[in-house]
Design a protein around this nucleic acid. Structure first.
Lengths: 68, 68
DNA sequence: TATATTTGTACCTTAAAGGGTATAAATATG
DNA sequence: CATATTTATACCCTTTAAGGTACAAATATA
């Protein structure tokens, strides 16, 4: 599970739209969209802002370890 | 263990200087420095470029989970 | 299937990340 | 303690992430 899919999935679980998630996370709508579409060159702090809503965050893992 | 410390530690283990790590990872020297100093607003893909040298990568974890 | 909602794409602007280089500070080594 | 090596800071420049808005495409709903 990659970050993009994780976020999309968690958002769905909470029945939030992209604008709602952006609002709550305090990031721009476009950021959420690009993030969910797998953009790699995103800022770490912004990603963590979003993940914080789900009780998770970015961390270092071994390659091929299951995330979360 | 946060990302900054993890990278600094791994680099030391391999007896690399910051310029050497930057060279190998294909990122700028300044990026390595800011990264090791805990800068949050770094690009995810660049971080992964560095972590790849250590056989690790960025992933989503639960808050307060031990990383790596 | 028609309509409403949600998501994705495109354009523009602004702020700042990333890079190079030079130099100062800190650390290691003899 | 003196010197060499490594790391941190400061400067400038270029690139681009992020945000806003508008519109198109896709998906859900009636």
């Amino acid at each position: 599970m990659n970050i993009s899919d994780f976020i999309k999935e968690k958002r769905k679980q909470l029945n939030l739209t992209q604008p709602e998630l952006a609002e709550r996370a305090g990031v721009g709508l476009r950021f959420i969209r690009e993030l969910e579409q797998g953009k790699q060159s995103v800022r770490l702090d912004k990603v963590n802002q979003v993940l914080a809503l789900f009780g998770s965050e970015i961390g270092v893992i071994k390659k091929d370890s299951p995330t979360f």
